[in-house]
Protein backbone atom coordinates (compact mmCIF):
# COMPACT_ATOMS: atom_id res chain seq x y z
CA UNK A 1 0.00 0.00 0.00
CA UNK A 2 1.19 3.53 -0.68
CA UNK A 3 0.03 6.71 1.00
CA UNK A 4 0.47 10.18 -0.43
CA UNK A 5 1.60 12.20 2.57
CA UNK A 6 0.53 15.84 2.09
CA UNK A 7 3.96 16.94 3.32
CA UNK A 8 6.32 14.28 1.96
CA UNK A 9 4.63 12.91 -1.15
CA UNK A 10 3.93 9.29 -2.03
CA UNK A 11 5.53 6.89 0.43
CA UNK A 12 5.27 3.18 1.06
CA UNK A 13 3.31 1.57 3.87
CA UNK A 14 6.34 0.74 6.01
CA UNK A 15 6.82 4.43 6.89
CA UNK A 16 3.37 4.67 8.45
CA UNK A 17 1.69 3.38 11.59
CA UNK A 18 -2.01 2.64 11.72
CA UNK A 19 -4.10 3.72 14.68
CA UNK A 20 -7.69 3.17 13.57
CA UNK A 21 -11.02 4.86 13.17
CA UNK A 22 -10.70 8.63 12.94
CA UNK A 23 -14.38 9.22 13.57
CA UNK A 24 -14.65 9.09 17.38
CA UNK A 25 -14.14 12.52 18.95
CA UNK A 26 -12.66 12.83 22.40
CA UNK A 27 -15.46 13.90 24.77
CA UNK A 28 -15.24 17.13 26.67
CA UNK A 29 -14.11 17.06 30.29
CA UNK A 30 -17.67 17.03 31.64
CA UNK A 31 -19.11 14.44 29.22
CA UNK A 32 -19.31 11.65 31.78
CA UNK A 33 -18.11 8.09 31.98
CA UNK A 34 -20.46 6.58 29.39
CA UNK A 35 -19.37 8.99 26.69
CA UNK A 36 -15.70 8.34 27.43
CA UNK A 37 -16.31 4.60 27.52
CA UNK A 38 -17.83 4.76 24.04
CA UNK A 39 -14.96 6.90 22.82
CA UNK A 40 -12.34 4.51 24.17
CA UNK A 41 -13.94 1.18 23.29
CA UNK A 42 -16.68 1.37 20.69
CA UNK A 43 -15.50 1.02 17.12
CA UNK A 44 -17.33 0.24 13.91
CA UNK A 45 -15.92 -2.69 11.94
CA UNK A 46 -16.31 -1.06 8.57
CA UNK A 47 -16.32 -3.11 5.39
CA UNK A 48 -15.88 -0.34 2.88
CA UNK A 49 -14.83 3.28 3.03
CA UNK A 50 -13.70 4.59 6.39
CA UNK A 51 -11.72 7.46 7.77
CA UNK A 52 -8.58 6.41 9.63
CA UNK A 53 -5.74 7.87 11.65
CA UNK A 54 -2.28 7.11 10.30
CA UNK A 55 1.05 8.35 11.64
CA UNK A 56 3.92 9.14 9.30
CA UNK A 57 6.55 8.14 11.86
CA UNK A 58 9.09 7.21 9.19
CA UNK A 59 8.79 10.67 7.66
CA UNK A 60 7.46 13.99 8.89
CA UNK A 61 5.69 12.66 12.03
CA UNK A 62 2.41 14.09 10.85
CA UNK A 63 -0.83 12.44 11.86
CA UNK A 64 -2.96 11.96 8.79
CA UNK A 65 -6.61 11.35 8.20
CA UNK A 66 -6.74 8.71 5.46
CA UNK A 67 -9.96 7.80 3.67
CA UNK A 68 -9.48 4.16 2.78
CA UNK A 69 -11.64 1.34 1.49
CA UNK A 70 -10.99 -1.59 3.80
CA UNK A 71 -12.08 -4.06 1.12
CA UNK A 72 -9.88 -2.86 -1.73
CA UNK A 73 -7.29 -0.77 0.16
CA UNK A 74 -8.00 2.06 -2.24
CA UNK A 75 -7.18 5.40 -0.71
CA UNK A 76 -9.53 8.19 -1.74
CA UNK A 77 -8.08 11.06 0.26
CA UNK A 78 -5.28 11.94 2.67
CA UNK A 79 -5.56 15.04 4.84
CA UNK A 80 -3.27 16.30 7.58
CA UNK A 81 -4.70 16.22 11.10
CA UNK A 82 -6.00 19.56 12.33
CA UNK A 83 -2.83 20.31 14.24
CA UNK A 84 -0.35 18.67 11.87
CA UNK A 85 2.77 20.22 10.48
CA UNK A 86 2.50 23.63 8.93
CA UNK A 87 -1.21 23.91 9.63
CA UNK A 88 -0.49 26.30 12.49
CA UNK A 89 1.95 28.47 10.59
CA UNK A 90 0.38 31.86 10.04
CA UNK A 91 -2.69 30.88 12.03
Amino acid sequence: MRIVCPFCGERELGEFTYLGDAKPVRPTADAGEDAVHDYVYLRDNVAGVMSENWYHGGGCRAWLKVTRNTLTHEIAAVEPAAGAGAAKVGA
Binding site: T17, L19, A22, R26, N53, Y55, G57, R61, A62, W63, P80, A81, A82, G83, A84, A87, K88
Partner: peptide, 25 residues
Protein backbone atom coordinates in the same frame (compact mmCIF):
# COMPACT_ATOMS: atom_id res chain seq x y z
CA UNK B 1 10.64 6.56 23.66
CA UNK B 2 9.23 6.17 20.15
CA UNK B 3 5.72 5.30 21.25
CA UNK B 4 5.43 8.24 23.64
CA UNK B 5 6.56 10.59 20.87
CA UNK B 6 3.87 9.13 18.61
CA UNK B 7 1.28 9.41 21.39
CA UNK B 8 2.18 13.01 22.19
CA UNK B 9 2.07 13.94 18.50
CA UNK B 10 -1.38 12.36 18.34
CA UNK B 11 -2.49 14.40 21.36
CA UNK B 12 -1.05 17.57 19.86
CA UNK B 13 -2.19 17.16 16.26
CA UNK B 14 -5.46 15.27 16.60
CA UNK B 15 -6.85 15.72 20.12
CA UNK B 16 -5.71 19.24 21.03
CA UNK B 17 -5.00 21.11 17.78
CA UNK B 18 -6.09 24.32 19.48
CA UNK B 19 -2.96 24.36 21.66
CA UNK B 20 0.00 26.33 20.37
CA UNK B 21 2.77 23.84 21.08
CA UNK B 22 5.45 22.02 19.13
CA UNK B 23 7.32 18.82 19.93
CA UNK B 24 10.84 17.94 18.90
CA UNK B 25 12.44 14.59 19.49
Amino acid sequence: AGLVMQHLEFCRQVLFPDLDVQLTS
